[in-house]
């Protein structure tokens, strides 16, 4: 996949994620609707591919207004990754050569890889995560479980300990998926299952849409680096 094709695919998938987010705000408070109506319009334009570079810049300005409106992300990590993607796409379009576009797009792919690895690292160094206690607490008293039935999972410490280690190992080992294309596809399949599970358990629907939109950058970077060719 060329960097241009990967950027285009990212734009389309990100637009779908932004449309999904924007629609959720259409019936929100009056002073947030305007920002998301603008985002909705710009995301539809980005799908069409007309003047993508300027649409990306306009989306970045819109994202700054939204950031200011809520004094930070509205939806945590999914908003942060949306903003990072919009920023990288805007910057990539402004680059003078294809090589510089690759550096910018590579930065996005690197950050998405870090989103798994650093998250796994920050867990494995915590004793409560290694024992499963942290995940027990997530289910027992955090605001995240999507229903009271899901909250009762806190009563299954062995299951939660196994789940903790499954999450930690997946996140820490994710960078190894770059070794081959098939390993990356397997890694992304597990990543998708992980995000869908987070949606089912904690209602994080926006994370699925946004992280999937970043997958083309990983596929491109793997093909570009092709680590096996170095051996």
């Amino acid at each position: 996949m060329s960097v241009e094709a990967a950027i285009r695919l990212t734009e389309i998938l990100l637009s779908i994620a932004l449309i999904q987010q924007s629609l959720e705000h259409i019936f929100g408070l009056p002073d947030e609707r305007g920002h998301y109506l603008v985002r909705l319009f710009l995301a539809a334009l980005l799908i069409s591919g007309i003047q993508s570079q300027w649409v990306c810049v306009a989306l970045f300005v819109n994202a700054l207004f939204i950031l200011k409106r809520f004094q930070g992300p509205y939806n945590g990590g999914s908003d942060l990754l949306s903003l990072l993607m919009i920023f990288c796409l805007s910057l990539a379009h402004m680059m003078p050569s294809s090589l510089w576009q690759e550096y910018v797009f590579g930065y996005l792919a690197l950050q998405v890889t870090f989103s798994y690895f650093k998250s796994g690292w920050s867990k494995v160094i915590q004793r409560d995560w290694r024992s499963g206690r942290a995940l027990e607490d997530v289910f027992a008293f955090s605001a995240y479980p999507a229903s009271e039935v899901i909250r009762t999972w806190a009563a299954w410490p062995r299951l939660l300990c196994a789940m903790s280690w499954a999450v930690i190992l997946f996140e820490l080992l994710f960078p190894l998926a770059f070794i081959t294309r098939s390993a990356l596809i397997a890694g992304l399949t597990i990543a998708l299952s992980f995000h869908v599970a987070n949606f089912y358990l904690f209602g994080f629907n926006r994370f699925v849409w946004v992280w999937v939109a970043a997958f083309p950058s990983l596929l491109w970077l793997q093909a570009r680096l092709n680590p096996l060719a170095w051996i």
């Binding site: 950031l67 200011k68 990590g77 990754l81 903003l83 989103s115 650093k118 998250s119 920050s122 997530v138």
Partner: peptide, 26 residues
């Protein structure tokens, strides 16, 4: 300056999800 302060965590994210389970608000 405030906007830059808000923007920086998006451009250089820490990606520390759920590392410490803090007291949770209702």
């Amino acid at each position: 300056l405030n906007l830059i302060k808000l923007l920086l965590p998006a451009l250089f994210p820490s990606w520390r999800f759920f590392d410490v389970i803090a007291p949770s608000p209702r």
